[in-house]
Amino acid sequence: MFMGEYRHNIDDKGRIIMPAKFREKLGTVCIVTRGLDHCLFVYSEQEWGNLESKLNNLPLMKSDARAFTRFFFSGAAECEWDKQGRANLPVNLREYAQLAKECVVIGAGSRVEIWSRERWEEYYRQSEESFGDIAEKLSDFDIDF
């Protein structure tokens, strides 16, 4: 499980350092794709395979299923870590997440997320205000805090 929040910068070549704890769990190759809320989702190859199986079982005749799988898979890219623990993020993914310099890398359970610092701070501020309401809604899924 991935957890925690880390601050890192993207260099001029589009590379970001992944925290060592995350790299160990992600393995030498990971999959990066467009995430929800204009961040990037990062998966280990194993977790990507699990997710890929689930998405491939969505009904092809449902337009929402087709749209989501197109969005998700078309943005996916394999990334490898260099000796300094950096991965080069493709331009299209950096543009989607508006990653320029300062980034926030967070653990989100089965995946890692990469956010622009500005977007993360705005998202966090808005979510913090409604955290109690969100937690209450999750009780419908048999999750108690």
Rank of each mutant, 00 (worst) to 15 (best):
L55R: 12
R23V: 15
F141A: 07
D140M: 02
F71R: 05
N88P: 03
C103S: 01
D144N: 05
Q126F: 09
E122Y: 04
L58T: 14
C30A: 15
F131S: 11
V91M: 10
R23S: 14
C103W: 00
S74A: 13
A20C: 08
M18I: 14
K137V: 12
V105I: 10
G4K: 12
K83H: 05
I10T: 11
K62D: 15
S110P: 00
W48T: 03
K13G: 04
D140N: 03
A20I: 05
G85A: 12
Y96T: 00
R125V: 01
A100T: 01
G49H: 08
D140L: 04
M18E: 04
F22Q: 01
R86W: 06
S63Q: 13
D82G: 07
K25M: 15
K83G: 05
F22T: 07
S139D: 06
P19G: 14
G107L: 01
T33Y: 12
A135Q: 10
D82F: 06
F2H: 10
G14W: 06
R66L: 15
S116C: 14
I143L: 14
R7N: 07
E113K: 02
F72A: 12
E47D: 14
K83A: 05
R34N: 12
E52R: 06
R86P: 00
E118C: 02
S139K: 06
G75H: 09
F72K: 11
E52N: 05
S53Q: 15
V32S: 05
K13T: 01
A108I: 05
M1L: 08
S110W: 04
D133Q: 09
S44E: 13
E95W: 02
F73H: 04
V104D: 00
L89H: 02
Q126V: 10
R7S: 05
R23G: 15
S127T: 11
E118P: 05
F2Q: 10
M18L: 11
Q84G: 13
L99P: 03
E47V: 11
D11R: 02
W115Y: 05
I10Y: 08
V112D: 06
H38E: 02
R15I: 02
E95D: 09
P19I: 15
G109W: 06
M18W: 08
E128P: 03
G14V: 09
R111G: 00
G4T: 11
E129L: 02
A67E: 07
G75D: 08
